[in-house]
Design a protein around this nucleic acid. Structure first.
Lengths: 132, 132
DNA sequence: ATCAATTGCGTTATGCTATAACGTGTGCAA
DNA sequence: TTGCACACGTTATAGCATAACGCAATTGAT
């Protein structure tokens, strides 16, 4: 899937996420966009919904937050399962992919005849800098 | 870690989860325990906090719900990373472990000098029965 | 025995996360 | 030009989680 032209709201939300150091909650995004006319959570959630669909933003389930995809330009859907390491101290998020992990998980679901739609892999802990 | 004797509230919450067909939200648990004197969310959350700590209950981050561990008797902390397949149609949850997946993820974190605390793997989709 | 520390518990209040439901405007294709 | 799809704005509400206070029971060191 190729990413269509973003609408005004989608662009605003995406820009905020791209410029952010780490993941942001929907309400944090809302606050950052009040100056641009945002007034309600739905404006953010609706934009996020599309950005997630386009694969340019990821949702971090374990911390109810969102990050811009680490692969500028391409569509993350093509990278297989995306995994995240989330530092609980500084909030930094690192995105990575491991084909062997994908493979093992997909083997398992195949054996179960389970039909996967969305897979979440999130490792919370301390990043190198914070663990030191 | 061995599981200590559960308190009254912890037992009530655990029993509800064990008897449930699938994962339950904290508020659903609360409703099921109103007859037993539960009145406030905190009574549930406090019990869950301990049950999670003892490893007899798991939290499903992607659906804000909780399930009893699938390994009656033992401590899930000893099984390495736990993965879940969650059916979005019927709500059924299957818990599994894959040492190779653990291994790959732990290799990755080691390479990054990231210190993992808690890892989440959740596959949402359709179970065999619902996909048919 | 007694005091201090810990732990569980109950209650009220509050904060954070997410969506329902309704209506408006715009662009485009039949 | 009418009908549809989509983005958008607004208000209200639902759902998830914790802060802060106080009390009671337990434990364990002195």
């Amino acid at each position: 899937m190729t990413t269509p032209q973003l609408t005004k709201n989608q662009s605003l939300v995406f820009d905020v996420l791209e410029k952010a150091e780490g993941p942001l909650s929907a309400y944090t995004i809302l606050d950052k966009l009040r100056d641009h006319g945002f007034r309600a959570p739905l404006q953010v959630y609706r934009a996020l919904e599309k950005l997630l669909e386009y694969g340019v933003v990821h949702r971090l389930e374990s911390i109810n937050s969102f990050v811009a995809c680490a692969h500028p330009g391409d569509d993350c859907h093509s990278h297989g399962i995306v995994a995240f390491a989330i530092c609980e101290s500084c909030g930094q998020v690192t995105e990575f992919h491991d084909h062997e992990v994908d493979h093992r998980l997909m083997e398992w679901v195949r054996g179960q005849k389970f039909k996967p739609a969305k897979t979440t892999i999130e490792i919370r802990g301390l990043c190198k800098a914070c663990a030191a």
